[in-house]
Design a binder for these strands. Sequence first.
DNA 1: ATCCTGGGAT
DNA 2: ATCCCAGGAT
Length: 371
Amino acid sequence: MDDKEEQKALWQDKLLARKIATALADWFCKNGRLLPWRETTDPYKIWLSEIILQQTRIDQGTAYYFDFLKSFPTIESLAQASEEEVLRLWQGLGYYTRARNLHKAAQKIVHEWRGVFPSSYEKIRTLPGVGDYTAGAIASFAFGLSYPAVDGNLQRVLSRVYASREPIDSTVGKKLYLRLAHQIIEEGDASVLNQALMDIGATVCTPRLPLCDRCPLESFCKVANLPQAVDFPIKKRKVPLKDLYFFFFYLVDGEGKIVLEKRKKKDIWQGLYQLPLIESETPLKQEELREKVERMWGVEVAEHVEGKVLRAKHILSHRRLHLTFYRSSITTLFDESKTPWCEYRLISAEDLEQYPLPAAIFKYLPSFLEE
DNA sequence: ATCCTGGGAT
DNA sequence: ATCCCAGGAT
C-alpha cells in the first residue's frame, strides 16, 4: 500500500510538471527575451555567449559577445589566437579563467574534433570551463537535446515554486533542483523550457521583488504573493570578506618607459599585467613597506615609498582590496631573479592599453596619472 | 562530498 | 550587500 501512495505521488509530480511546462511554453512565446545568441543554433555562438554570461549581466556581456565574434568568427580563429589576445578582449569582464578555458576549449575542438563542435552532452561537458549548467544550455539550445540547464535563476524559481528549503549550495540541493528541472523539461521542448525558466527568473521571479501577478507559474507556486518568497532560495554558506593590501608602483625610467609585470601566480588575475606590486594580508607601515620593497627589488627603489599618490578601495566578492599607487622614476631596472613568479618588461606609457589589465588598475589609472 | 576561490556590476 | 558558475584543493 506504500507502493500505491508512492505511485500516486509520482503521478501527481508528473502532472504538475506537465502543467508547469505548458504554462512556461505559452508564456515564452509572448514574453521570452529576444537576445542575439537566441537567433542562432550555431553551437559556437551559443557556447561563447554562455561562457561570457556565466558571471556577467546581459547588458555588459553583449558588447563582448559581438567583439569576440568579430575578432574570432570561427572556432579555428579563436584556437589560433594567442592567449594574450583573448585576455585582452576579455579585459574588464573578470574571472579570467573563463577566457583561458575558452581558448583551450577552442583548441581542443580543433584538435580532437577537427573544429566541429561536439554534439553530445557528454563530449560538450568535457570542454574546459563547461560545467553541468553550460553543457545543458548548449546541448538544449544548439542541439535540441533534453538536458536541464540549472543556473541561479532556475534555482530561485524552482525553490520558490516548490517552497524548497534545501540549500542551493548543498550537494543534496543541487541534485534536487536538477531533478525538478529535468522533470519539467521532459514534458516539452527543453530549449524553450530552459529559456522560459531563465527568463522568468531574470525578469519576473527576481531576487528582491518578485512580480507574482505577472508569473505564469503563479497558480502552481507555493510561495506566490507571499512575503516569504524573497527568503528563497536558501543558502547555507556565506564567506566573510578578507582584506588584502596592494601597493602598486608606477615607475618611469629615463626614457619615459614604465615597468609592467605579468602575473604568473595561480591566484587572482593570472596572466594579466599589472604595475609592479607588493601584496600583503595586513596593512603595512611605511617602514615595513620600504623593507619589503628593498627585499624584493633592491635598495634603489626604496625611495619610491615616499611618493604616495593615490589610495582606493576595490571590492571583490570575497576580497576587499586596499590599493595604494605610488609614482616615481627609476634609473635601473630591478633584479628579476628575486621574483620568479612574474616577468618584468619596460613599455612606453601609451602602449599600456594594449595589455590586459585588471579593473582594479585600469579603473584608477587615469585619475592617478592626472595628478 | 565539501570548501574555497576567482572579479566586476549593481 | 548580493548576484553569478567552474575547477582545484581538501
